[in-house]
């Protein structure tokens, strides 16, 4: 299996590169793992960027971790954004970059007015159903407020 994955990775499949890196990582060959994660990241395969950042984070290499978490955050990855806030809460440039990503998503968690009409239309089940989207919005709001607490100057009107 490992050989065929290697073949696919060499042909250029970033998903196979990521898998290969995972195998090296489990085997303790961290440098090889990093190499393949980095290759996949170069091909714009962002899940690999997050794994690479995780390795640097565990090694204590903060600047590299930040670089790759930044890449991973581009797809609004909650964990990557949270790590960025943890690593460099006062770096205004990076924080405003994260805020921009968050603001690009739908972060509305309130039902707005007229809940009665909604209840009459859908029954209360609709209200009780916990949609993954709403859960994510709550997390994004939490991160956003954390950033604003550290950097009040980033608060926009």
């Amino acid at each position: 299996m490992k050989n065929s994955i290697k073949k696919w990775a060499q042909a250029g499949d970033p998903n196979a590169m990521t898998q290969l890196a995972e195998i090296y990582l489990t085997g303790g060959e961290i440098e090889e793992a990093k190499k393949y994660f980095a290759q996949a990241t170069e091909k714009n395969y962002l899940p690999a960027a997050k794994r690479l950042a995780d390795i640097f984070y565990d090694e204590g290499n903060e600047p590299e971790a930040i670089t790759y978490y930044k890449k991973a955050a581009a797809r609004a990855d909650i964990e990557a954004m949270e790590k960025l806030v943890e690593l460099c809460p006062f770096d205004e440039e990076i924080m405003s970059y994260v805020l921009e990503i968050i603001d690009g998503q739908c972060n509305e968690i309130y039902f707005h007015s007229n809940s009665l009409k909604k209840i009459m239309l859908f029954g209360t089940t609709r209200m009780a159903e916990y949609m993954p989207g709403q859960a994510m919005a709550i997390e994004r709001r939490r991160i956003k407020n954390k950033i604003l607490k550290f950097n009040p100057s980033l608060r926009r009107a």
Binding site: S4, W8, A11, G12, D13, P14, N15, A16, N44, Y45, L46, P47
Partner: peptide
């Protein structure tokens, strides 16, 4: 993006 990329590679190489 990731899923379609993988599917494309699967059929491209025969995985």
């Amino acid at each position: 993006f990731e899923a379609n990329l993988k599917l494309a590679w699967i059929y491209e190489l025969g995985q």
